[in-house]
Design a protein around this nucleic acid. Structure first.
Lengths: 241, 241
DNA sequence: CAGTGGTCTAGACCACCTC
DNA sequence: AGGTGGTCTAGACCACTGT
């Protein structure tokens, strides 16, 4: 069958809605029909079926396993991250019981990092990249940058400490007094997709944070990439008066 | 050419990177080569080229116009929305000088709305749906729900007032004292894609808000869908001690 | 080995825009 | 009429998983 009305609902979207209905009652882990079979059922092509499946995977309702099949995913256990006190480590260590150190090295700041840390271009920065996991599943990648010149031997110190903030406090007497954060949607690059077991191009939540010391100088710039199908962020507001 | 190494960088992603390079120096509005021509250039299929183009469009770097071509988009003028004082209207009216009323009616609450407003299932709610624009371009859709029983004649009052909060204050003596907000990524449904001039399935930012009156009862539940390629949200934090 | 998802191809027809 | 993007098709080969 050829095309269709423009501005009508795309065919893949109708397939998606039908699939959504079909999997509504199924338990996590339940296998759904193979893509080729679904294409026959819906009298469409595998490409169209895959487009529908991809959106459902991106929304966290299905999981694909190469060579095995497509399965109903765990209930969208969207974790809620409170944005209230990012200056403590408590939260991170609470939500992510385990984390793997991916990178700990000294690099030359690219233009964005040097801008955010108010350094000259190419200044040396310590880069700390961690993979955060919950119940063994990779969920977020956090990359923090701090000026290397201000914190000599930081790399060494970090090997003995659990957290960056702890090291800053104990070895350099610095407490972070202020922070700005932004949240936006980005598409997952290949390397991060592999580490997080997601698909390349899947929408992710990017939380960027800049933290300041008491003297008002920026001390840390961090980028945290969260799986968009697993997380949401939360804030609370109270009226001043 | 057939396939490729699994876990290698997908071909479309290489095309995307090359295109990114090519458009780096071009001004907004500049037309790029047609899809069929790009497919020849990169010695690949149109499908693959379109996959790369789609990601660039989603990131806000390109714009597609049916029948005309593909063009370099305006610089990613990502607007930053402060999350600090959502209880005032000031912000909304400041950032979005114009807004169109899409819907103003009374409906039966679905399960999510009744849950959030602590109503019984199917209770009647006033639904206010607005399209927010900046410089004539549609940027967000905001849908607010309030219990109909608590605010009689609200529909009528809203026709005379600029804002919901203003009407609540002046006609019912209610000021909102508290609010919770969550931010997550969702995929754009067809109707909203049409209204916002985006693509179906494009990643969007969904901000959900529940506001409480002084007596602690939930008064408003609102869902705001922002174009993911145009917005980011920002918060500031200050250490208590 | 057969079956699954992962990627890519070549080409079709449509709707839209411009000339 | 011709070119553009929008959607869909049928089918190919690959990598991976199970038997």
């Amino acid at each position: 069958m050829p095309a269709h009305d423009t501005h009508a609902e795309p065919k893949y979207y109708q397939v998606k809605k039908k699939l959504l209905n079909d999997i509504a009652g199924l338990k996590p882990g339940h296998a759904i029909a193979p893509e080729r079979e679904l294409a026959e059922q819906f009298r469409t092509s595998r490409t169209t079926v895959r487009q529908a499946l991809t959106e459902l995977v991106v929304q966290g309702l299905l999981e694909r396993a190469q060579g095995r099949g497509t399965f109903v995913a765990n209930p969208k256990t969207t974790q809620t991250l409170q944005l209230n006190h990012p200056l403590d480590d408590i939260q991170a260590n609470d939500i992510f019981p385990t984390s793997t150190l991916l990178t700990l090295d000294i690099e030359h700041a690219d233009s964005e990092v040097s801008l955010r840390l108010e350094l000259r271009g190419g200044a040396r920065v310590v880069r700390i990249e961690k993979l955060r996991l919950t119940s063994g599943e990779p969920m977020a990648i956090e990359t923090a940058y701090v000026p290397a010149s201000r914190f000599p031997y930081l790399k060494r110190h970090l090997k003995q400490h659990k957290s960056l903030y702890c090291a800053l406090r104990e070895h350099y007497g610095i407490t972070l007094s202020q922070a700005e954060e932004t949240i936006e949607t980005v598409l997952c690059p290949p390397r991060e997709a592999m580490l997080l077991h997601t698909e390349v191009g899947a929408p992710m939540l990017l939380l960027s944070r800049r933290s300041y010391a008491d003297d008002g100088t920026p001390v840390e710039f961090a980028r945290s990439l969260y799986r968009g199908d697993r997380y949401k962020f939360a804030t609370k507001h109270t009226r001043p008066n």
